[in-house]
Write a protein that binds this DNA or RNA. Sequence first.
DNA 1: GCTGGTCAATTGTCCTACAATATACACCCA
DNA 2: TGGGTGTATATTGTAGGACAATTGACCAGC
Lengths: 242, 242
Amino acid sequence: MPTGSDNKFKARQVTRPRDQVEQQLREAILDGHFGQGDKLPPETELAQQFGVSRPTVREALGALVSAGLIRKVPGVAGGSFVNSVTPDSLSQMLSESMDTIVRIGALDIAEITAVRRVLEIPAAQWAARNRSDADIAKMRSVIEQQKRTTIDDPDIPEYDLRFHTAIGYASGNRLLGAFIAAVHDATHPAQFLDVTSDVAKKTIRQHIAIVAAIESSEPEAAAAAMNEHLDYVLQYSLPNAS
Amino acid sequence: MPTGSDNKFKARQVTRPRDQVEQQLREAILDGHFGQGDKLPPETELAQQFGVSRPTVREALGALVSAGLIRKVPGVAGGSFVNSVTPDSLSQMLSESMDTIVRIGALDIAEITAVRRVLEIPAAQWAARNRSDADIAKMRSVIEQQKRTTIDDPDIPEYDLRFHTAIGYASGNRLLGAFIAAVHDATHPAQFLDVTSDVAKKTIRQHIAIVAAIESSEPEAAAAAMNEHLDYVLQYSLPNAS
DNA sequence: GCTGGTCAATTGTCCTACAATATACACCCA
DNA sequence: TGGGTGTATATTGTAGGACAATTGACCAGC
């Protein structure tokens, strides 16, 4: 028998069944063994394959659902389907997280709006270089909607979100687009609290100016127009800040 | 009996028990009925109070764990404890999400590094205005570590992350700090692949220059120094990009 | 006073069964 | 022949109970 010299005993951390199942499934999806939209085996089958019980499988699947990797649908044609994970889903999760942190009090709306400026000005700049015709069309369609609407339309913030998000993605940088959508969404509750007709009109005029600069591929003009727009708009979004 | 004119019948969406429990607990925490660090009732008790079974409660709690709102510890003194949710937790979740999206192929590292530039230059600028002495001390201590280490130190990326994160939070904007930490973390795998002694030394010199500008409250100089540093560093982080 | 073992509360996992759900398909009636 | 209608069925959702694992607290003994 070897003398007690326990050379290099590994002692890898014990992992609970639930985590092992979750990790294996996550890896399988990320490695492409299950493509987007594919249906993974039913829970009973997975339980058999992993040698664990169905509740354990369910907890693992639940974690993947929370992570946005899969979605579950009940019914005979149901099952666990691999989600198409895109920057959009990141944006959604991000804005939810920011909401809770703001609500907890560990983040101010003012900090979010400050980041908005940091993100949206370069976005306008890059959009002037990289925009496609579809991007321009999207911005125009939002502006048309804004023109047609009235002050009591509850969807006014939604239009604004769509406009700025369109510019974000027109920058050609999907991460930048996702960030902009998220920070914009998180500032919604504090925005357009008492929008007047004049404010709405001026907002639309500024939007038009931004699109014009982007369409004619003038990065500096686009950045300047966006800067001016944010200057104007953000003063209406923080009733209780300086 | 009223003539069949069913005026304004509600038909609110049916909600599953699991979601109701999750929503109620989430609201209770966010409304402050449970403070940070508080222990909520054991699962059996919650099941009784809600009138559902323990598995249902467990699924709801599991979702809250995934959301980072609570953590669960086993054992006699265990239970579900309310997490202190901060921008840090957002940063963690964010970098994980970006990792998976990159792995799926819906995001390029190049896009992340581009956003890094957008975020870190204003951060340096603001840090020059808002930094505390503790911030400066933290940056200095990281630099000291970097000076002492050798090329084969596996923690080199970790030092760099800490340095840039310190600047992010020194900006006084917690969201900006969290974003910087996340994007920096997500670019780690592609960074410092073959760092040479010369590169390490130059990196340290640039770090020193950045701290000097921040400490002497020169926003423009800090921004310029950061810009130069990113120019230099990012060329070593993308072996397979132009 | 310190070390060690036992206890108890709580979560983790398992089993089994039933309820709810939603598609697919046959069926009936016009 | 066509369209709605009911029914079968596969799958997830919920239930309830039982046991294993974990870990701090308490207690006994040296």
